[in-house]
Design a binder for these strands. Structure first.
Lengths: 198, 198
DNA sequence: TTGGATGCCAACCAACTAGTTGGTAGCACT
DNA sequence: AGTGCTACCAACTAGTTGGTTGGCATCCAA
């Protein structure tokens, strides 16, 4: 491995290890030593590459969200399908959901952090796509709809214990995702789609 | 103050201080010293009254949920109203929402903790009330509906930053809550209610 | 009055933490 | 061969952490 490759590999190993650690324990609970150990490199490298623990966390979140963006296409004419796809992505990427929750808990009330412009723009694009799919103009109302659809997709992965408390520990997560998507479909008005079976 | 009253007051002061601290920083981030200082008692009292940091956290959550239960009546014939009331309660008790999020992040995948039976029973009662209100039998489907309704009410308080990113930092939270309730109303079928004003 | 709980606290401690430092090994260019 | 540079690491540090201990004050029962 050339030194450049080695550097990049070290950095990526740290990001991967950090994603696990942060997803599991959050920023405060994460241990820098554990991250370094899991990555198989010296912990000083964290400071060399990322500056400090929090910046490493930010880098992890950015990477995870970039991944989501690259894999989930914009909402189109069928918002229910969008909810389904999102929910499925969250289900298969529980780390991301947990990272977002830790992040949501960390910055409270503050103004948007620098570096959030990317996210704002991405959401604006989603809002435009959603509005176009509905044959409407992008507005606060379509943005609110986008928020609720995104939230609905998140719910089952965000609150698995609540689901267990309400449905029993042997409930079927796949049915829950189906239910959530159907719920969105019902709210969006009478269109053609599979009814709630069962 | 009699010693008993004093003891009870000490205990309550600790609970109140702990609620703030835990809501703000979570279990890992909370500092036992800060809790004791805010409560105006020695930190050893935490161990005398609650055993350790985690048990104190559990006690805080139990108290907060008892409070919610005592103030929010069961869902009835109008589930949309239930969502509204819940959302309003969460808005005025952001500490509870954050506590629930920290808790959700802490215990992952595990079986239900001892002491959760109370919660299971409460949810079962809500499910029965919801089903009765809809003129249905309690089932997994009505439980899923309860989950989604609860989740919808939680969303705006759980993800305020996402709302800011999607709607701008000057958006109106009251409108968001209205939107969420209306959304639930639309999904629950054509009934009489205020339309989404735009 | 006295003896024993009980609530409380100041001071303490061992373990752990994020972050730093001084130095080494390997590469690139001259 | 010599020089500078970069990625890397072992060892260290200064500060913090959850939890403990020994003793003091107050109350109540006998």
């Amino acid at each position: 491995m050339s030194p450049r490759d080695s550097t990049a590999a070290t950095r990526q190993a740290l990001l991967d290890a950090a994603r696990e650690e942060f997803a599991a324990h959050g920023v405060a609970g994460a241990r820098v030593d554990r991250i370094a150990e899991r990555a198989g490199v010296n912990k000083e490298r964290i400071y060399g590459h990322f500056g400090n623990k929090e910046k490493l966390f930010d880098a992890v979140v950015v990477e995870a969200l970039d991944d989501l963006t690259s894999q989930i296409s914009l909402p189109g004419a069928d918002p229910v399908d969008y909810v389904s796809r999102l929910a499925e992505y969250y289900r298969t990427h529980p780390d991301l959901v947990r990272l977002l929750m830790w992040e949501a808990l960390n910055y409270r009330g503050q103004d948007l952090l620098p570096g959030q412009e990317t996210r704002v723009q991405r959401c604006a694009r989603k809002n435009e796509a959603l509005a176009e799919g509905l044959g409407r103009e992008p507005s606060q109302d379509t943005a609110r709809l986008l928020f609720v659809l995104t939230g609905l997709a998140l719910l089952p992965s965000m609150l698995p214990q609540l689901a267990r408390i309400m449905l029993g520990s042997d409930h079927d997560p796949a049915r829950m995702r189906q239910f959530v998507a159907d719920f969105a479909g019902m709210a969006l008005g009478p269109r053609e789609q599979a009814g709630v079976e069962g």
